[in-house]
Amino acid sequence: MTTLKVKIESLDQTMATVADLLKAAKAGDATGGEFSLSFPSWETMHKVLTPKRLEIVTAMTGQGAMPMREVARRVGRDFKAIHADLETLLKSGVIDKAEEGGVIFPYDRIHFEFEIKSAA
Rank of each mutant, 00 (worst) to 15 (best):
K97A: 10
A84P: 04
H83R: 14
L37C: 05
E113Y: 04
A84F: 11
L86V: 15
K97W: 13
T31P: 00
K80S: 12
E70K: 07
F114S: 08
S10N: 01
H46K: 13
R74T: 01
E100L: 12
G32R: 06
E70I: 02
V57H: 12
L86Q: 11
L11D: 12
A98M: 06
D96I: 00
Y107V: 01
D85S: 10
H111L: 15
S41C: 11
M66E: 09
Q63P: 01
M45F: 03
M45V: 04
I95P: 08
D29S: 04
F39D: 06
L22H: 08
D96L: 09
L21T: 00
V48A: 03
E113L: 13
E70L: 05
D29Q: 03
M60E: 01
R77I: 07
F114D: 02
H111T: 10
I110A: 00
D108N: 09
I82S: 15
K23S: 14
I104N: 01
A84H: 13
R69M: 05
S10Q: 03
E9A: 14
K5H: 15
A65F: 02
F114H: 09
M15W: 04
G28T: 01
A16G: 00
G62T: 02
K80T: 13
E70W: 00
K52I: 10
G28E: 02
A25K: 05
F39R: 03
S36P: 03
I56S: 10
D12S: 12
R69P: 00
P51M: 08
T3R: 13
S36K: 04
V75C: 05
V6F: 01
H111W: 02
G102S: 10
K52N: 14
A24C: 03
D20F: 06
R73F: 07
P67S: 04
F112G: 00
K7N: 14
T31S: 15
K23E: 15
D85R: 04
M66Q: 14
K97Y: 12
F79E: 12
R53P: 05
I56E: 07
S36L: 06
K47M: 14
H46A: 07
T2H: 05
P40H: 02
D96G: 03
L4N: 03
D108P: 00
L90V: 07
